[in-house]
Each structure stands twice: as structure tokens, then as C-alpha cells.
Measured scan of single mutants.
Amino acid sequence: MFKRLMMVALLVIAPLSAATAADQTNPYKLMDEAAQKTFDRLKNEQPQIRANPDYLRTIVDQELLPYVQVKYAGALVLGQYYKSATPAQREAYFAAFREYLKQAYGQALAMYHGQTYQIAPEQPLGDKTIVPIRVTIIDPNGRPPVRLDFQWRKNSQTGNWQAYDMIAEGVSMITTKQNEWGTLLRTKGIDGLTAQLKSISQQKITLEEKK
């Protein structure tokens, strides 16, 4: 169930391209415009997507990853294993993690069937560096609404905000991946996880038929 919630949630996290980005210092504006741009692209490019579902990787690479804190999220997933990894191991892992996100997020976007969304009203940021933004996803086919909290983090150097995690039903996506990959990290280390991520990233994206 959580895996499905995570995939549905990713439908609204794909941010804007650099040329049309919203105010990078306001995570609420980023979330709002990102959702609108993403849904528009999914709707307008269905012919290309249906002809070649792996085209979704391109959308992810162009529109999402430049505005997601990939390395920060990847380091959180590694936890204690990050500090013990060599620079070469980290570089290989982050490259594999990025390719994994292209496949995983692309597969999530393949679930698009006309969903709509509501974003919580903007709250004062103050001096906060981590801000959760509640998004409610509404399914046109009558499924119950899904309420999610996207975690946005302020870059201490640039002042810009980027998304790095999502919490559904009190469970963090980062925590879920830590639990899912924990045994592999304990037995085969970061190299074993890197190899698995490379394998997963090679899987073809498949479209979910409308139910």
C-alpha cells in the first residue's frame, strides 16, 4: 500500500525546468507551479508516452532531478554507511541512485490517469530550513484521497528550496528505503546496493492501464 502511495505522490513532485522555475526561495510556489507544469506535460505528451513509456525517463531527467536534492536524499538512505564509504564508492552510488530515480519516478508518472491535487495554504517560513507541505491527491475514479507531506529543505548556501522526502501515513519514503535496503547494505555494503540500483534502473517502464 505504501509503495502505491509513494508512486501516486511522485506525480506531483516533478519540479519546473530552470527556464520557467518559480521563486526558488518559496517552496509553496515551487510546489504549486511544479504540480501544474507536471500535470500539463503528462496530459499533453501522452502520444509520446504511450508510444514509448521510457520517454518518461527524459521527462524526469529534464523536469524533476535538477530540483530534487538527489545527493542529500541518497546520503540519508545510506545512513551510517555513508561515512564509511570511499569517495569513489559515493560517486558510483550517487550515479546509480540518480539512474534509479529516473526509472522509479518514471514508473510513478506512468500512473497518471487524470488525477488532480490540492496544496495546503502557504504558511510563514520564518527562519525554518525544513518545511512540510501537505498535498491532497484526488483520484477521478473514486479512490479515497491521498494526503501527503512533502519535505522541502532550504539550501544554506543559495537560499533555494528543494524537495527531498515524502511522508505518507506517518511513514517517510527515506525511512522506507532504509528499511528495504538495510539488509543488503549490511551483507554486501554500498557496492552491493550500487549494483542492485544499476540493475533496477535497467527495467523498462510500463504503463498502468486505467481501472
Score class of each variant (00 low, 15 high):
Y100H: 13
S201P: 15
D149N: 03
L125H: 10
G192H: 10
Y72S: 02
G74Q: 01
Q89P: 05
A92T: 15
V12C: 14
P144N: 05
I138M: 15
A19Y: 03
K198L: 08
F150M: 06
T20D: 10
K210C: 10
A108Q: 11
A34R: 03
L193R: 15
A34M: 15
I59H: 02
Q103N: 15
L64K: 01
F150V: 15
A35I: 15
E169I: 03
V12S: 04
Y164E: 14
G106T: 09
L109K: 13
L207G: 15
Y67A: 05
E63V: 03
F97P: 00
P140I: 14
L5K: 01
T194W: 11
L16T: 07
G189F: 03
I49D: 05
A168P: 00
M6Y: 05
R50G: 10
Q48C: 06
S201G: 14
L16Y: 10
Y105T: 00
A85H: 06
A34F: 14
L125F: 11
A9C: 11
Q123V: 12
A73N: 02
K198C: 08
G106K: 03
V131A: 00
M111R: 04
L101H: 11
V131M: 09
E209M: 13
D23S: 13
V8L: 13
Q162C: 04
D23E: 15
V171M: 01
I200C: 07
W181H: 15
Q69I: 04
P66I: 03
D149L: 03
Y93S: 04
V146S: 02
I59D: 00
M7T: 04
L56W: 07
E33A: 10
I137D: 00
K154M: 05
T206I: 11
I13H: 03
Y72P: 01
Y93W: 04
N44L: 15
L76R: 02
R153M: 01
G189V: 03
Q62L: 08
V12E: 01
R57S: 15
G170I: 01
Q62K: 11
M1D: 00
E208C: 11
Y112G: 04
D54F: 10
A108D: 01
Q162W: 03
M166F: 02
P53Y: 15
Y112A: 02
L193D: 01
I205Y: 14
A75M: 01
M166T: 05
M173H: 08
Q107C: 11
S17K: 15
G159T: 12
D165W: 02
P144L: 09
H113V: 12
K198I: 11
Q24F: 08
P144K: 09
W181L: 15
G159F: 10
D40F: 06
V135L: 02
A21I: 05
T187H: 14
R57L: 15
K37Y: 11
R98C: 11
R186W: 00
T187W: 11
A35F: 04
Y93T: 03
P124R: 13
Q157I: 08
L5V: 04
A73Q: 07
G159Y: 12
S201Q: 12
H113L: 02
A22C: 14
S17W: 09
T136S: 14
Q48L: 11
L56P: 08
Y55T: 12
V8S: 04
D54W: 06
T158L: 07
P87I: 07
M7K: 07
K83W: 01
Y55W: 06
T116I: 15
K83N: 07
A168T: 04
S199A: 02
M111T: 05
A18D: 13
I59Q: 06
A104P: 03
Q157K: 11
S84Y: 13
Q202R: 10
A51C: 12
V68F: 06
W152G: 04
K29T: 12
Q203M: 10
K177I: 11
K204F: 12
L197C: 05
G159W: 11
L207V: 13
A51D: 10
Y105G: 00
G142M: 09
K102E: 07
T20L: 13
W152I: 00
Y82F: 09
P144G: 10
V60R: 00
Y164H: 07
M166H: 07
A96P: 12
N160T: 12
M31H: 06
W152R: 03
Y93N: 05
P145W: 05
P53D: 15
M6Q: 01
M6P: 00
E99S: 09
Q202G: 10
G126R: 10
G182I: 13
P121V: 12
Q123G: 10
V12F: 14
Y28K: 09
S156K: 03
E209D: 11
L11Y: 02
A35E: 04
A9E: 00
G159M: 13
A73F: 02
G159Q: 11
V131T: 08
L184D: 06
M7Y: 07
Y100A: 12
Y112R: 03
G79L: 00
R90P: 02
K37I: 07
A35L: 12
V77M: 12
N155D: 04
T175M: 06
K29I: 14
E180P: 02
K37S: 06
I138C: 14
K204N: 08
G192T: 15
D61P: 01
A95E: 09
I59P: 04
L64Y: 09
I130L: 05
M166C: 01
E208A: 14
L109N: 13
T158I: 09
V131H: 13
P132K: 10
G79F: 01
A88Y: 10
S201V: 06
N141L: 05
V70L: 06
L148T: 03
A195S: 11
R98H: 11
E99Y: 12
K83T: 08
A96R: 06
P27F: 03
I130C: 00
I119C: 08
E33P: 06
V60D: 03
S84C: 10
D139F: 13
R143V: 05
A163M: 15
G126S: 13
M7Q: 03
Q162P: 11
Q196V: 07
L10M: 08
Q178V: 02
Y164F: 02
E122F: 12
Q151G: 07
Y105V: 01
Q162F: 00
L197T: 12
Y117M: 07
Q157L: 10
L148F: 03
A73H: 02
T175S: 05
L11P: 02
L30M: 12
A195T: 13
A19M: 03
I119P: 08
R147W: 03
I138N: 10
A35N: 11
V171E: 07
Q123R: 13
L207M: 14
E91Y: 07
G182T: 15
R134F: 01
I205G: 05
R41S: 07
E33G: 04
A34S: 09
T86S: 10
V68L: 15
E180H: 04
Y93K: 00
V135F: 00
A92M: 13
I200G: 07
Q24H: 12
V12R: 00
V60K: 00
D61S: 12
D54G: 09
S201T: 11
Y81G: 10
L207K: 13
P124S: 12
Q123L: 11
K198G: 09
A168H: 14
G192Q: 11
Q178D: 02
L207T: 15
T25I: 09
F2R: 01
M1Y: 00
A96C: 13
A21C: 07
A18S: 13
N155C: 01
N26A: 05
A75P: 01
S172W: 05
P87A: 10
P87H: 11
L185G: 06
Y82G: 01
K128Q: 07
L148E: 09
A168V: 03
S172H: 02
T129H: 10
A120I: 14
A88G: 13
T38L: 13
P124E: 13
D23H: 11
L184Y: 07
D32Y: 08
P124M: 13
R98G: 15
G126H: 08
P15C: 05
L148C: 00
M1T: 01
E209P: 13
G189R: 05
I200H: 11
E208V: 08
D61G: 12
L56K: 04
Q80L: 08
F150W: 05
T194E: 05
L10T: 03
G182E: 04
Q107T: 14
T176W: 11
T129F: 06
D139S: 06
P144F: 11
S199V: 10
L65W: 12
I119E: 06
E45Q: 09
P132E: 05
